[in-house]
C-alpha cells in the first residue's frame, strides 16, 4: 500500500520515457527528406493557398458581421452567473410581482403553471391564493355548458388575449411574445431583457417611427411597439424593496430566467456532484492507465537489419 501511494505521489516520474529520445526516433523514420524538390514546392504552394483561402473566408465572414448595426447588451454581474451560483429567489419572487402587475397586461406565459411557483418563490398556500385571483373557463358541465371557476394550482398563467389575432388588433399589429422562454429565445438572454427594459430613449435624427412605435437601441431595428413599461415606483414591492426602474427590470429579468430555465438550480447542484465524481474517476483512470501500460512502456524492441 505504501509503495502504491509512493508511486502515485512520485507522479510524473512514473514510467516516463524521455520525450527528446522519442522525437529523434520518429524523425529518423520520416520520409519527407526523400521527397523531390518539385513535390516539396507543390505541397508548400497548396498549403499556402489553402491557408490563405481560409483566412480570406474568415475575414469576409467577419466583415459581413461588422456591417450589422446592432447594439449588444452589456454583460451584467448577475448573482446567478457563475458555475454553481443559484438564482436569487427573493428576486424571482419580486420579479413575479412585476410580471403579474406590469407585463401580464399584454404578455402571456402559457407554459408556467401556478404549481411551478411552489418551492421556488411561493409557499403552497400563497400559490393557491395567487391562482384563485383569476377566473378560468372550464367545462363542459353536465348540460354541456362552459362555466367560470376560480383558478387552481394546476392552471397555467392566464392569457391576456383570446388569440394571436386579438393581441395584434390591440397592439397596432404587433404581437407581444409569450414570455415563458423569452430569456432563452433572445440573444443576450437576461442581459438583453434588462437592457431592453431600461434602454428606452429618444430616437436619433433620421430615424422615423410610425404611429405606436418607440425607439429602443437594444431592439433589433430600433423601432419597438412596446412602450416603456417600467418607471420608478410603478408598483410597490411586498418586501419593501425600493422599486426603482432598474430594480424592477433586474427582478423581472431574474424571474424570466427562472421561467426559461426552471431546472437552473438543480443543474448547478448536479455540476458540483459531477465535478466531484469525475475528478475521483480521473485519478483512478490515470493510475489504471499507467498501471496497464507498464509492460508496453518498459518494453524494448530491437531491430536488426538483414546483412
Amino acid at each position: 500500500m505504501a509503495a502504491t501511494v509512493g508511486r502515485i505521489c512520485a507522479g510524473a516520474g512514473l514510467l516516463k520515457t524521455s520525450n527528446g529520445a522519442v522525437f529523434n526516433q520518429i524523425n529518423a523514420f520520416s520520409t519527407t527528406r526523400e521527397w523531390s524538390k518539385g513535390r516539396r514546392m507543390v505541397l508548400a504552394t497548396v498549403g499556402a493557398l489553402a491557408g490563405g483561402a481560409g483566412a480570406l473566408m474568415f475575414a469576409l465572414d467577419q466583415s459581413v458581421k461588422a456591417s450589422d448595426l446592432e447594439l449588444h447588451p452589456p454583460k451584467n454581474p448577475w448573482s446567478h452567473s457563475g458555475l454553481i451560483n443559484s438564482l436569487d429567489h427573493s428576486s424571482v419572487r419580486r420579479g413575479y410581482e412585476v410580471y403579474k402587475q406590469v407585463c401580464a397586461a399584454c404578455h402571456s406565459m402559457k407554459y408556467i403553471a401556478y404549481r411551478n411557483l411552489i418551492g421556488v418563490s411561493h409557499t403552497e398556500d400563497e400559490a393557491k391564493a395567487e391562482a384563485a385571483e383569476m377566473m378560468v373557463t372550464d367545462g363542459p358541465d353536465e348540460a354541456g355548458n362552459m362555466f367560470q371557476r376560480p383558478g387552481k394550482l394546476s392552471d397555467y398563467f392566464p392569457n391576456p388575449y383570446a388569440n394571436e389575432e386579438a393581441a395584434r388588433a390591440a397592439n397596432n399589429g404587433a404581437f407581444p411574445p409569450d414570455l415563458s422562454y423569452i430569456v432563452s429565445a433572445r440573444h443576450g438572454g437576461e442581459d438583453y431583457i434588462f437592457s431592453l427594459l431600461t434602454g428606452y430613449c429618444d430616437a436619433p435624427a433620421g430615424i422615423v417611427l410610425r404611429e405606436g412605435q418607440y425607439y429602443n437601441p437594444y431592439f433589433p431595428g430600433g423601432a419597438i411597439s412596446m412602450a416603456q413599461a417600467l418607471y420608478n415606483e410603478v408598483l410597490e414591492y411586498e418586501d419593501g424593496t425600493p422599486a426603482t426602474a432598474s430594480q424592477l427590470a433586474k427582478d423581472v429579468a431574474t424571474f424570466l430566467k427562472w421561467t426559461a430555465e426552471p431546472e437552473h438550480d438543480d443543474r448547478k447542484r448536479m455540476l458540483i456532484k459531477a465535478a466531484g465524481m469525475f475528478s475521483f474517476l480521473l485519478v483512478v483512470t490515470y493510475y489504471l492507465k499507467r498501471h496497464k501500460w507498464t509492460n508496453i512502456k518498459t518494453r524494448k524492441i530491437e531491430f536488426k537489419p538483414r546483412k
Binding site: S79, I84, N85, S86, L87, D88, H89, S90, R93, G119, V120, S121, D265, K268, R269, I272, K273, G276
Partner: peptide, 20 residues
C-alpha cells in the same frame, strides 16, 4: 450528496428559497 448540497448552500447563502 450531503456534502455537495452543503457546498451549494454555503455558496448561495441568503439566495435560496429556504432563506426567503
Amino acid at each position: 450528496d450531503l456534502s455537495a448540497e452543503s457546498i451549494f448552500r454555503s455558496v448561495n447563502q441568503g439566495k435560496l428559497y429556504e432563506d426567503i
